[in-house]
C-alpha cells in the first residue's frame, strides 16, 4: 500500500528534466576547454629547444602518449562513474595507461641500473614539477569539477579521483613539452609523484565541491 502511495507522489511531482549527454560527448567538452588551456601554459612557459628531436624519439613519444592516454581515460572514467549503469571495469580503466607510462619509465630505470649500477639512479631536486603540473592541470581540473557537479550522479568519490588524475596527467603531458627533464627516475619521482599527489589532493577537494552541489540548495 505505502509503495503505491509513494509512486503517486513521485509521479504527481514529476517535472521535465534535461538529459545528460553521454560520457563521450562530455569528454569532448572537457577536451575543448582543457587542451587550449594546457597548450597555452606550455607555449607561455617556452617550449624546450630540443622539442623537435625529442618528438622524433619513439620512447619520448610512447611516454607522452601514455601520459595523454592516462589523462583521457581518467576523465572518461570520471564521467562514466557517475552513471549507475556503467560497468565497473570502465572505472578502473585508467590503470592500464598508467601501467604503460610507469612501465616504460621503469624499463629505462632498469637499463640504467644494468649499465651503471644503482648509482646511476640519482635523484636530485626538481621541485618545479609540482607547481608546473598543478598550473597545467588547473583549468582541466576546474572543468571536470563543473561537469561532475552538473551531473549529480553516483560514485562521486571515485569520479573525483579519476577526474583529478585526468587533469594532473594532462598537466604532466604538457610539462614534458617545455621542461627538459628526461631522466626516467626524475620523471617517475617528480612528475609521476606530482601527478599522484595532485590527484589525491585535488580529488579530495573536488569530492567536497561535488558533494556540496548534491546536498546544496538548503533553503
Amino acid at each position: 500500500m505505502e509503495t503505491e502511495r509513494l509512486i503517486d507522489c513521485l509521479a504527481g511531482d514529476l517535472a521535465p528534466v534535461r538529459r545528460l549527454p553521454p560520457p563521450s560527448v562530455r569528454l569532448g567538452t572537457w577536451l575543448l576547454v582543457s587542451l587550449p588551456a594546457v597548450a597555452l601554459v606550455a607555449w607561455g612557459s617556452g617550449l624546450r629547444p630540443d622539442l623537435a628531436s625529442r618528438l622524433a624519439n619513439p620512447r619520448f613519444l610512447l611516454e607522452e602518449a601514455a601520459a595523454l592516454l592516462t589523462s583521457l581515460v581518467g576523465a572518461y572514467a570520471a564521467l562514466c562513474a557517475l552513471l549507475p549503469d556503467q560497468p565497473g571495469w570502465k572505472l578502473w580503466l585508467p590503470l592500464a595507461p598508467m601501467a604503460l607510462w610507469l612501465g616504460s619509465l621503469g624499463q629505462q630505470c632498469l637499463e640504467v641500473v644494468l649499465r651503471f649500477g644503482p648509482a646511476g639512479l640519482r635523484v636530485t631536486s626538481d621541485a618545479m614539477c609540482l607547481p608546473a603540473i598543478a598550473l597545467g592541470g588547473l583549468v582541466p581540473a576546474i572543468a571536470i569539477v563543473v561537469l561532475l557537479r552538473r551531473a549529480r550522479g553516483f560514485r562521486t568519490t571515485h569520479a573525483c579521483f579519476c577526474g583529478a588524475l585526468g587533469a594532473a596527467a594532462l598537466g604532466a603531458t604538457a610539462l614534458r613539452l617545455y621542461h627538459p627533464q628526461d631522466a626516467a627516475i626524475m620523471v617517475i619521482v617528480w612528475q609521476l609523484g606530482s601527478v599522484a599527489l595532485l590527484s589525491l589532493v585535488a580529488g579530495g577537494i573536488g569530492r567536497l565541491l561535488v558533494r556540496t552541489s548534491e546536498h546544496g540548495h538548503l533553503a
Partner: peptide, 25 residues
Amino acid sequence: TLLALHGSRHLYDPARPFMPFLFGI
C-alpha cells in the same frame, strides 16, 4: 531505489536498456 531513480532521471540515456540503469541504482 524509486526515490533515487526519481532524482536520477536526467542520467538515463534512452539509447541504453533501462533495467541495468535501475539495477545499478
